[in-house]
């Protein structure tokens, strides 16, 4: 990514947009590779793909500094890529290899890389919200110039800890951004069966913080909204709630047999695919060749990463000393 100007800016440059586009393509290719590997029986456990939602994770992280902390959900691949993690090591972790970011201990839902400020996927729905809030608390108390951003879904927005976190963050003016990635489904349940209101951003008013709803499939719109909220957090004015509307194109996970999403909805959202929308803007500005070169290179990167990761060795088991319940066995650790 090209260096950012020193002052906060609310719109990405065209180069920044192209880089975000590349990251969305990398994410999409990653999901496709995982789909294929799953079909081939190479993966373990469920995998939650974010096809169609790439603009949220990539756009949001594009507006942050490297030192800022991000927490995400069980469907966080776009955030991992957006935060600058390498596809090869992401894939290795997802495939349970020694070379994965977490040595095969985490799997695809819990990937973290603290040096990148990537503070975890989280498979407990809603847990990313107080997690980012606590990271914002440490920044505030320690006087460090960093903010935290939580991505979470419309399902997580119904948890108690969501409301508790927003109240505390607003009360203490914590430097945190609440990015609600509204993909319309909690597992198989549509948002209309989960919430008393269709628009969730209006809840911000109840906590005395700004709230806005944006097009979650427009990577530039996501960037702009998060950049505004991040600037507010950095100023010490407290949290914001951004509701990014998008749609989950694949099922809940690789174990989902589907059947509950209507063909009409899928067709309507497919026409608004975030990569398609982004490409149209970039082709107009930079020409088709340059954009296609970037996309081709992105696909090749992921294909090579998948091949390399599959060849990587599985990890060896090592006992975890801090988990040992007995004092005598862990002498001198």
């Amino acid at each position: 990514m090209t260096p950012k100007p020193a002052l906060p800016h609310n719109s990405p440059s065209i180069d920044e947009h192209l880089e975000m586009h590349r990251r969305m393509v990398v994410t999409r290719e990653l999901e496709r590779q995982l789909g294929a590997l799953h079909k081939a029986g190479v993966t373990r456990g469920p995998i939650h793909r974010c096809d169609g939602q790439e603009a949220v994770g990539v756009g949001a992280t594009g507006a942050l500094e490297d030192r800022d902390c991000v927490t995400t959900t069980h469907r966080g691949h776009a955030v991992y890529i957006g935060k600058g993690l390498a596809p090869r090591r992401i894939l290795a972790e997802i495939l349970g290899r020694e070379t994965g970011y977490n040595g095969g201990r985490a799997g695809h839902m819990l990937i973290g890389s603290p040096v990148h400020g990537m503070m975890g996927g989280n498979a407990i729905v809603g847990a990313s919200i107080p997690a980012a809030t606590g990271m914002a608390l440490s920044a505030q108390v320690l006087g460090e110039d960093r903010i935290a951003l939580a991505t979470f879904g419309d399902g997580a927005a119904q948890t108690g800890i969501c409301h508790e976190s927003m109240n505390i963050a607003a009360l203490w003016k914590l430097p945190v951004v609440f990015l609600l990635e509204h993909n319309e489904y909690g597992l198989t349940a549509h948002a209309s069966t989960q919430s008393s209101v269709a628009d969730l951003y209006i809840r911000a008013a109840g906590h005395g913080m700004p709230g806005e709803q944006i097009d979650g499939n427009d990577v530039v719109a996501v960037f702009q909204a998060v950049a505004r909220a991040a600037a507010r957090a950095r100023r010490g004015d407290g949290p914001s709630l951004i509701e990014a509307r998008t749609y989950r194109m694949e099922g809940f996970s690789t174990s989902d047999v589907g059947g509950y999403q209507s063909d009409e909805d899928l067709a309507r959202w497919r026409a608004r695919d975030p990569i398609t929308l982004s490409r149209a803007v970039l082709v107009e500005a930079l020409g088709e060749d340059r954009v296609m070169d970037v996309e081709r290179a992105a696909a090749e990167t992921v294909a090579a990463a998948a091949e390399a990761a599959q060849a990587d060795p599985p990890p060896h088991f090592v006992p975890h000393a801090p988990s040992d319940p007995r004092a005598f066995a862990t002498e001198g650790r």
Binding site: P114, M119, T133, G134, M135, S138, A139, E144
Partner: peptide, 11 residues
């Protein structure tokens, strides 16, 4: 939960 995550980040 905040105690956990704040402790991860220096507090």
């Amino acid at each position: 939960a905040m105690a956990v995550s704040a402790s991860m980040t220096g507090l």
